[in-house]
Computed example of a mutant assay.
Amino acid sequence: MNWLLVIAGAVVGAPLRYLTDRAVQARHDSTFPWGTLAVNVTGCLVLGLLTGAASAGAAGPHLQLLLGTGLCGALTTYSTFSYETLRLTEAGSGLYAAVNAAASVVAGLAAAFAGVWLAGALWA
């Protein structure tokens, strides 16, 4: 049963990642990977919300499997982030690569903490 929850979340998360990445990137005339940054930060926010909800007793293990492992596992992408950062470096855009790495870590952590805080405000 648990694996079905993970698959169901991934069935939504994978196309959502692709469509969001394409939509965000289409709005920017830049080599900076805005789409990947957007899906990764969004996934961090969702995981923060889910973690806070679970801590407050508002989300059980089934929801964690569905949304945390399935949806966010397919939505977020560390491999694409790494590849795009490497590609920027190889193309001579070292500043973009450094900004991408720093922004991904800082914004991702900020989104996760914001999600935990928001969940605490909602379910405390």
Rank of each mutant, 00 (worst) to 15 (best):
S82W: 00
R87V: 08
A38P: 07
A121T: 12
A107E: 01
G48K: 10
L19R: 05
V116D: 10
V39I: 12
D29R: 11
W34Y: 15
L75E: 04
D21Q: 03
F32C: 08
A59I: 02
T20I: 06
G9I: 05
V99L: 09
E84T: 08
Y83C: 03
H28S: 07
T77Y: 07
V105I: 13
S82H: 01
V39C: 02
G43S: 05
A54P: 03
S79I: 08
A97M: 10
G92M: 06
A8T: 10
A112F: 14
A23K: 07
A74Q: 00
P15N: 06
T36L: 06
T76Y: 04
A58Q: 12
T76L: 03
C72R: 02
L16C: 09
Y83R: 15
A98D: 04
L19S: 02
G52C: 06
L75C: 07
F32E: 13
L67M: 07
L4W: 15
G57M: 11
L16V: 04
L122I: 15
L122Q: 12
L45Y: 09
S30T: 07
Y96P: 13
A102C: 10
S93W: 09
A119E: 10
I7H: 12
S55R: 15
A54E: 04
P15A: 05
A74P: 00
G92N: 03
V116E: 07
A38R: 05
L49W: 00
A54F: 07
A10M: 02
L88H: 09
G60L: 11
G73L: 13
V11W: 11
A14N: 03
L19V: 03
T20Y: 01
A121V: 13
W3H: 11
T80R: 08
A91H: 08
A26L: 00
T77G: 04
L109A: 11
G73R: 09
F32N: 00
A103M: 04
L4A: 15
V116H: 11
T20Q: 00
S55E: 14
A102N: 05
L88D: 12
L66M: 13
A97R: 11
F113K: 10
C72N: 01
Y96I: 04
A119C: 10
C72A: 00
W34T: 01
A98Y: 03
A38K: 08
V105A: 11
L66A: 12
L122Y: 10
R17S: 01
R27I: 03
A74S: 11
A98V: 14
G108F: 04
A110V: 12
A107N: 00
A59L: 02
A97T: 10
A119P: 15
T20N: 01
A110I: 09
A23L: 06
A103L: 06
R87T: 10
Y18N: 03
V116S: 14
L5N: 06
A121D: 09
S79T: 14
L47Y: 00
G57C: 13
A56R: 08
T36C: 12
L47V: 11
C72M: 02
L71I: 05
V6Q: 14
A14R: 09
T89D: 09
S55G: 15
A74Y: 02
L50H: 11
V99C: 09
Y18V: 02
A114T: 14
A102Q: 01
